[in-house]
Nucleic acid binder design. Structure first.
Lengths: 143, 143
DNA sequence: GTACGTGCAAACGTTTTGCAGCGGG
DNA sequence: CCCGCTGCAAAACGTTTGCACGTAC
């Protein structure tokens, strides 16, 4: 957890984002606790628990801005809900379908053999590998 | 395109679904045109264009039932929208971020080197590989 | 005939927006 | 001081649901 409040100000500044009270407070929640997979709703609850006065609109703005600035990585696994991953290193995910929970897979535990080239005129932006798992005794097709 | 209306009745029957007019008509749209990646909204438009009287609720019911029965495969790439893939063979996807379009990658063009074992007590349900691409000149982080 | 499927409209949860006011640089 | 950020409430979006009617078998 290489994080200090000081670093957060730099982080925001380097990303071209001004250091508002909300962004500093939310940034402390987001980045101050190691690698996390946050949904907007989770972050809202944590902010409330930490007595940070912040509106839901600002939660969404902040998550989107942080993602756009490369401070977070958005992961889409379920229709109708986004997760934001603080782990920016190359890695992949288990998704526990029955819990709605993500789990990191470090890049050295999984590699892709022969990545096909991007279609003409396009660049590869990201490669997401999602291994969907569920309890052994659960029904299939649970999503 | 190995498809005939006759086969569709069998398909539905084998899946334990009764052959209603709506399911037959939608099935013809879904399966009668080769491999496709359909959203609910697209299917609704095509049904309207084909003068199939069907409500939006039935579109969603049908897509969900077909998926549950293993006739379709749901692919989640964007928050707030599901795609349904008629290609049931093992394969992966390019996702064109700026067009919101999926493109198949056949399994033999990409393979995973060393799949990690599922976490204790869980089974792997599916492995999704999504290669996100965008026009070369487009902004990064477009989603 | 009966259980299951359908249509409609209203509800749902998540995310986005419009606009007035506040605060960072 | 000014531009950008924030809060609020309301709207938008895709999707789901409850219930009365219709249809497959």
């Amino acid at each position: 957890m290489n994080y200090t409040p000081q670093k957060l100000r730099e982080k925001l500044h380097d990303a071209g984002l001004s250091a508002t009270n909300q962004r500093l407070a939310l940034g402390e929640l987001i980045f101050g606790r190691g690698n996390r997979h946050l949904s907007a709703e989770q972050l809202r609850k944590e902010a409330a628990a930490a007595h940070i006065p912040v509106s839901l609109a600002t939660i969404y703005n902040t998550l989107r801005q942080f993602s756009g600035a490369g401070l977070l990585r958005e992961v889409v696994v379920e229709p109708g809900r986004s997760y934001f991953d603080t782990n920016l290193s190359e890695h992949h995910h288990f998704f526990h379908e029955d819990e709605g929970r993500l789990e990191d897979i470090s890049a050295d535990r999984l590699s892709i053999n022969n990545l096909p080239p991007a279609p003409n005129g396009t660049d590869i932006r990201r490669v997401d590998v999602i291994i969907r798992v569920a309890r052994e005794d659960a029904q299939r097709d649970v999503i």
